[in-house]
Design a binder for these strands. Structure first.
Lengths: 214, 214
DNA sequence: GACTGTGAAGCCATTCACAGCT
DNA sequence: AGCTGTGAATGGCTTCACAGTC
């Protein structure tokens, strides 16, 4: 065997490469070099080659990579050659925005159920989905063999929802806001924290000014 | 001088520490050790100490850190001892969700203007803000001395909005989706890509299964 | 000549382990 | 005894540089 540990940064970049390549493909571009990809997404050419080398030899020396083929290989690596059903818990502002988010559908993610515990929201329609009570989670997860859950509920409720999803069979969770989840080891969790992102901006703004004084 | 290069990961964690500490403070906790912080946010104690050590000596040996003081120091480091005015461009689903997002207000970010180029959206009220046309960006940015812009528009329009914001005087941008911005060097840009996050999940799901076969 | 694939080098972040303080 | 602060060691990711191929 060969594949061992893949840096998370590599996985992130593969996702980005593949979307850049799809744009090239739409423009009719047939072949691309690591340097062109690098410029297109803002990394170094060596980085592009290294990232791809973790998974095989996809290029031709002296020529570059075939765009269509490379797209296919990367999607295969990322597990995106099939559509993934997703459940979303939380039908507030964020949940509503995520349900409508085209970026998910474009990449084969299909939201098959939206849930909330708020009686005022249950029954409401978001896109073409009816918001369901939490009790329906197990049935929907089982019916569609859902592996991925998105949790967009107030911070105090996140752990509880995570447990419900995991018990129902979900194996990967995307959460928002500052939470540390207690879930079984086999469950993959990633978090998006928008306040952190803004605070990286403010840090850089003030730190830059601070340094210019030294 | 001493401070030189701070890892971005450190900045992220400081933001997370500070919110954990605020929860402790609300509970009335006076003193905390690096080990307790570490357990609370899911990192190693040494990491916590190292992160703080970049910026000074905030603890007492044998005792730990004073919660209130440490919160204050971290907020100072992150530039959060003042409120930051923010403009948001894009009044679609995501923009609307972001405008209502409590996590921003809680940390002192105040959205002072929401803009869109869609005539159907202009004039609409989101929270207590009226959606304004793009032409108003320079005036609002100047009036409130806005340094931070959030761009939540379709991917094709992002670069154009970024340029407008930068021309108006904004120095830090938060964008969504797969874009590489062309902006002056002094402008700080960070990106949130939700599809990438989901694809990290799928990668891990399929890669785990793949590895178990080897 | 052009560009990939890759071992080696370099760089950066995290962890270790212990001296120093309370 | 307990816990911080930190130099040293480790581990991991990125860049370099070049051999290999078209």
């Amino acid at each position: 065997m060969k594949a061992l540990k893949i840096p998370e940064a590599t996985v992130q970049r593969l996702s980005i490469y593949s979307r850049f390549l799809e744009r090239l493909d739409k423009k009719g571009v047939i072949t691309v070099s690591s340097g062109e990809i690098a410029r297109g997404v803002g990394v170094s050419p060596a980085q592009v080659r290294k990232d791809l080398a973790y998974f095989g030899e996809f290029g031709t020396r002296g020529v570059g990579y075939n765009v269509k083929d490379l797209i296919h290989y990367i999607l295969k690596i990322l597990g995106l050659t099939k559509s993934w059903p997703v459940v979303l818990v939380g039908a507030g502002n964020l949940g509503t925005a995520l349900t409508a988010y085209k970026g998910f559908a474009d990449r084969g993610f299909k939201i098959v159920g939206v849930f909330d515990n708020d009686l005022l929201k249950i029954g409401k329609r978001i896109q073409d989905l009816e918001v369901m009570p939490l009790e329906k989670i197990p049935a929907v997860v089982a019916e569609h063999d859902v592996k991925i859950g998105i949790i967009a509920v107030p911070i105090g409720a996140v752990q509880n929802i995570a447990s419900i999803l995991v018990d129902a069979g979900v194996e990967a969770l995307l959460t928002f806001g500052p939470v540390v989840l207690d879930v079984p080891e086999h469950v993959v969790v990633r978090n998006v924290d928008l306040a952190v992102k803004l605070e990286i901006l403010t840090f850089n703004l003030v730190f830059r000014d601070l340094q210019s004084v030294l």
